Lab assay of single mutants.
Amino acid sequence: MISNAKIARINELAAKAKAGVITEEEKAEQQKLRQEYLK
């Protein structure tokens, strides 16, 4: 099960992506976390 901290990070990265200020490194982290969440 995914931790609350990881869910919070997913939401934080989603907000950054929506604002258009996300880095390529953060995009990769976001994809990794989303895949983990979906498992």
Rank of each mutant, 00 (worst) to 15 (best):
M1K: 13
M1Y: 13
M1G: 13
M1T: 12
M1P: 13
I2S: 08
S3K: 08
S3Y: 04
S3T: 12
N4P: 15
N4R: 14
N4Q: 14
A5P: 09
A5E: 11
A5R: 10
A5C: 13
A5S: 10
A5V: 10
A5D: 12
K6P: 04
K6L: 15
K6M: 15
K6C: 08
K6I: 15
K6Q: 10
I7V: 09
I7Q: 08
I7K: 09
I7H: 05
I7G: 03
A8N: 10
A8T: 08
A8I: 12
A8H: 11
R9Y: 02
I10W: 15
I10Y: 14
N11L: 15
N11D: 07
N11E: 11
E12K: 04
E12D: 05
E12H: 06
E12Q: 11
L13M: 01
L13H: 00
L13C: 01
L13Q: 01
L13E: 01
L13R: 01
L13P: 01
A14F: 12
A14V: 07
A14M: 12
A14K: 09
A14D: 12
A14Y: 07
A14G: 04
A15K: 10
A15T: 07
A15M: 12
A15Y: 06
A15H: 06
A15D: 06
A15R: 13
A15P: 00
K16V: 02
K16E: 00
A17V: 04
A17F: 06
A17G: 04
A17H: 06
A17D: 08
K18Y: 06
K18D: 09
K18L: 13
K18G: 05
K18E: 11
K18R: 13
K18M: 13
K18C: 12
K18V: 10
K18N: 07
A19I: 07
A19Q: 09
A19M: 09
A19K: 09
A19W: 08
A19E: 08
A19D: 06
G20P: 00
G20A: 03
G20H: 03
G20F: 03
G20E: 03
G20S: 02
G20C: 07
V21G: 04
V21K: 12
V21N: 11
V21D: 08
V21C: 08
V21I: 14
I22F: 02
I22Q: 03
I22G: 01
I22W: 03
I22T: 02
T23M: 03
E24C: 10
E24G: 05
E24L: 08
E24S: 06
E24V: 10
E24A: 10
E24R: 07
E24H: 06
E24D: 10
E25M: 07
E25C: 05
E25F: 05
K27D: 05
K27A: 09
K27V: 11
A28I: 13
A28N: 09
A28C: 10
A28V: 10
A28L: 13
E29D: 02
E29Q: 03
E29F: 03
E29K: 02
E29G: 00
E29C: 03
Q30D: 04
Q30N: 04
Q30A: 15
Q30M: 15
Q30L: 15
Q31L: 13
Q31W: 09
Q31F: 08
Q31A: 13
K32H: 05
K32N: 06
K32G: 04
K32Y: 11
L33Y: 05
L33V: 02
L33I: 04
L33H: 03
L33M: 03
L33D: 00
R34E: 13
R34F: 14
R34W: 15
R34A: 10
Q35L: 14
Q35I: 13
Q35T: 08
Q35R: 15
Q35P: 01
Q35H: 11
E36T: 04
E36L: 09
E36C: 15
E36N: 04
E36I: 05
E36K: 05
Y37W: 14
Y37D: 06
Y37H: 05
L38V: 09
L38G: 08
L38E: 14
L38Y: 14
K39H: 14
K39Q: 14
K39I: 12
K39E: 15
K39N: 15
